[in-house]
Design a protein around this nucleic acid. Sequence first.
DNA 1: TTTTGCAATCTTTTT
DNA 2: GATTGCAAAA
Length: 702
Amino acid sequence: MEDELNAEQREAVRYLSGPLLVLAGAGSGKTRVIAYRIAFLVRHSGVSPHEILAITFTKKAAGEMRRRVEQLLKTDVAGMWIGTFHSVCARILRLYAGRLGYRQNFSIFDEEDQRGLVKEQIAELEISDRQFPPARVLERISALKAEMVGQEEMSRLAMSYYDKAVSRIYTAYQEALFRSNAMDFDDLLVNTVRLLCDFDDVRERYTDRFKHVLVDEYQDTNHAQYRIVAELCRERRNLCVVGDDDQSIYGWRGADIRNILEFEESFPEAKIIRLEQNYRSTGLILEAANNVIECNKGRKGKTLRTSNEYGENIVLLLLSSEEEEAQAVAEEILCESLERGTPLPEIAILYRTNAQSRALEIALRHSGVDYQIVGATSFFERREIKDILAYLRLCLNPEDEMSVRRVLNVPPRRIGRSALERLQQAASSRKLSLFETLRVSEDIEGISPGARRGIRSFLSVIDEFSGRQDDDVGDLIEAIVKRIGYREYLQAGSSNVQERIENVEELVGAGRQFAEEDASRREGEEPTLAAFLNDVALLSQIDSWRSESEKVTLMTAHNAKGLEFTSVFVTGLEDGLFPHSASMEDEEQIEEERRLFYVALTRARRRVVLTAAARRRRFDQRGSTGVSRFVREIPENLMNTRELWEIGGQGSMVGRRVFHEEFGTGTVVAQEGQGNAAKLTVEFSGNVKKKILARYMHLETG
DNA sequence: TTTTGCAATCTTTTT
DNA sequence: GATTGCAAAA
Ligand SMILES: Nc1ncnc2c1ncn2[C@@H]1O[C@H](COP(=O)(O)OP(=O)(O)OP(=O)(O)O)[C@@H](O)[C@H]1O
């Protein structure tokens, strides 16, 4: 088994004398170290799988890791805990949430729930939601939680008007969550830290159990996650983390790159092993990627070499519009697949923002290239699915206010805005949860008889099914759908009836499958409704992706983290898009964008194609956009540029920066005609104006 | 109360 | 260019 490792990897696999950081660049076999290390521990160090905790970035990565280890050991490792921080925390909290005053069956609020709840608090506090957009406030709250700054601390620290308002919202939000017996994503981490710190017996249970802890993608952990790791390793100190500071791309959601940069300070006796051999990419791709990432400051600094072939140049395609860019990508993919025989699943199209997928989809469909999109609206985010899930959540936890609000009147039960308002008022004046208020709604004035009947019928549904939480999940879903007449409801109203009904059937199927799933994949956990809801709430976008035969994959660069493809297309490489304009004011944020570009480049084994469009339709009318600065950081001799853009393309060139061989750089002030035949009036430096045919100009790329 | 239609606002990335 | 929010009509 060990001959599939190089000397440094082997050292990392075998090192057993305390905290270990494997710090290494892209494609250097870090993830492989984790898998082999687990196998090594089990086979040669007498560690039982049951005593190992491994953290991956996604559920999908966890599944692959488990499979890899089982392949190496040729036995199953059912007892090993492997999953994301969030799923591991949820599992611990299912047992111990009671210690923190929650009830066992707490709900996990997804982003939509969170936003709704924040919004509600803002309204209740009579704060302007124009001045404090819920999404921004939520971002802020989430960042605070990731940093483990509690409400009390925040209210003490808040000095500015803005922070004081955020602090009040934060407090109200936490109280509302607690009233709903619910946790958001951040609470899962924060509450686990509290549990491990404040309850010795709980901590001991897990520190006794987990003799070894391993963490992949350590560069994207936040402070709360660091605390969890630190608590779990407090005594044994058998910790192995792997990561690459140059691939830290989640700073914007609270990930703290210092976790990896300052690992030695946190764990003073730590050993650091560097891997310098890249097994994934061609020499040229690596050289390009290295040149880009070297523009960042404050790095650990790493060497990365490869003995793979040097390979072919990167291709840079410059197009006039988003549509042409997409078409060019589609054509290039057809070529590649026909001429070189690259299988479509070995090709990925990456982009900065999800919105970019649209044009690509149209072009691919047009060219008859099958594709698969990661992200977008996933199955479990569809309205009909979330409706049913809300009922399931209520079976376990009727205090879940967001779910009550979601489905109290779905299907319609004549409980409209006025009735809901009454209920809400009564709830807050009597200090009851919304659900409890429903129970006593008979004594509440101003509710129409129809609405009263609706409330009774809603309550009877919930009562009926909360007694049946132990049913097979699939059966339970089917029974609920029947009981509330959900199919009929869909049939009567909405668009896409067929599709929606099929989705409901698929959910029933997913429930059945969950109930039957073999125990090893669940690490010995029972297939309870709570476990099902956990799973669903904590799915990540990439989890639904399986490399499918004869399909190219489209996804954001973020989702491509950790993956590899023979051929990678990185699209939309314009200043303002990648790097994104929202990140362009701040040097640190630009560096994160650069790391993201580095991640994108290093996904490729053999071929990289970069594309940019001169014009792009966007509602927030971006001004002059040139080719991304990141592209210009790649040495020119490593790229073959194909300028396929028509300089005067469709639409106006006025305001664009252009370049002329003789006169240099200027700005277009007027245009007659279209395409390369257009006559452009260009103002060059020193107020020199010239009228020149577009075909003699170049679009300024920088 | 529900449905429909228009308007405003928004997208950067996601567990 | 779509989704969500709000107002008016049924
Ligand atoms: N010692 C080795 N010999 C041959 N191939 C290897 C070796 N180690 C790793 N690889 C291969 O190199 C590729 C990258 O490995 P892996 O995904 O573990 O790297 P990584 O450092 O986690 O990458 P990244 O940080 O870019 O996600 C994989 O295809 C893996 O199979």
